[in-house]
Amino acid sequence: MHRYGTVSSTMTLLHRLAAEGAGEGTAVVAEEQLAGRGSRGCAWHSPRGGLWLSLLLRPAAGTELLSLRVGLAAVETLQHLGPGLRLGLKWPNDLMLDDRKLGGILCEARWTGDAPAWVAIGVGINVRNPIPPDLSSVAIALADPLPALTPDAVLDALLPRLRALDASSSRLHDAELDRLALRDWLRGRRLAQPVEGYADGIGPEGALRVRRDDGTIAELRAGRLELAERSRSS
């Protein structure tokens, strides 16, 4: 494991290590990121007190499901650390606590032809870091319900699970679908975009199922979600 105080981005460092031949399971952890990044190129607020982790995998297949599998492992790990927490996984890559964002998953692959050379998995979890006042209505840290929990305690519990992930299948197994159904934060909530309707679970290929008002099912594999106002306030 490579540990740092302040870095620009753990993902950038991990990609560099991967290009130099680092093995599967190599991890980069920082106390603070100055240029952390989230999905769709968004900046990720990463001050001291949070868990900012990147992990190297070299899967032969199944890269399109890694975000869900990593997110599920993270939510289940946190549930073990705090059995009474109201945790969920918001498709495709957000960790939720009490209907606010607790963390996120970012997967970046590098390819050799049609095969993945490696995948860098980024995990950011708010643990003890302060939440900016302008984000307090939509974001939360684990310190709110679990003030004694430390980033290292979360890391020690989570990293072995991530290193043991089975990413060999390009479809979610029945057991994975059952576990996802228990943690599916979106299920039953109404979406306004990109398809209007109610979230109706996750399919075996990782697509979000949306039931339109006419009863037909749309399957989303990517895209930015927008909740309808009544679901935001539910």
Rank of each mutant, 00 (worst) to 15 (best):
Y4G: 04
Y4M: 02
G5H: 10
G5Q: 13
T6D: 11
S9Q: 09
M11P: 01
M11N: 15
M11G: 15
A19S: 11
G23C: 09
E24G: 14
T26Q: 06
A30N: 12
G38Q: 09
R40W: 13
G41S: 07
G41L: 08
C42T: 15
A43Y: 08
W44E: 09
H45W: 15
H45S: 07
L51K: 10
L53I: 02
L55I: 12
L56S: 07
L56D: 07
L57S: 04
R58G: 00
R58Q: 11
P59K: 00
P59G: 01
A61P: 02
G62K: 01
G62F: 03
T63L: 00
L65C: 09
L65I: 10
S67G: 13
L68W: 03
R69K: 15
R69T: 11
R69N: 05
Q79Y: 05
L81H: 04
P83I: 02
P83N: 11
K90W: 06
N93F: 03
D94V: 05
D94E: 06
L95C: 09
M96F: 00
L97A: 05
L97G: 04
D98C: 09
D98H: 10
R100L: 03
L102H: 04
G103Q: 04
I105W: 04
I105M: 04
A109M: 01
W111P: 00
T112W: 00
D114R: 10
A115V: 04
A117T: 02
V119Y: 00
A120N: 06
I121Y: 03
I121T: 02
G124I: 05
I125F: 02
N129V: 07
I131R: 09
I131H: 14
I131W: 11
I131P: 13
P133E: 13
D134N: 09
S136W: 01
S137Y: 00
A139T: 05
A139P: 03
I140S: 04
I140D: 04
I140K: 01
A143N: 02
A143H: 12
D144Q: 15
L146D: 00
A148N: 06
T150K: 11
T150A: 05
P151R: 07
P151I: 03
D152W: 08
A153W: 02
V154L: 02
L158Q: 10
L159W: 02
L159S: 01
P160S: 08
R161H: 13
R161W: 13
L162Y: 10
L162D: 10
L162E: 10
R163M: 03
R163D: 07
D166M: 07
A167S: 15
R171L: 14
H173K: 14
D174V: 09
A175Y: 11
D178P: 00
D178N: 08
L180P: 12
L180V: 10
L180E: 12
L182W: 05
L182T: 11
W185G: 12
L186M: 14
R189D: 06
R189E: 10
R189Y: 12
R190M: 10
E196Y: 03
G197F: 07
D200G: 03
E205M: 12
A207W: 11
R209H: 12
R209Y: 08
V210F: 06
R211E: 12
R211W: 12
G215L: 08
A218K: 02
A222Q: 09
G223D: 07
G223K: 03
E226Y: 01
A228K: 07
A228T: 11
R232T: 05
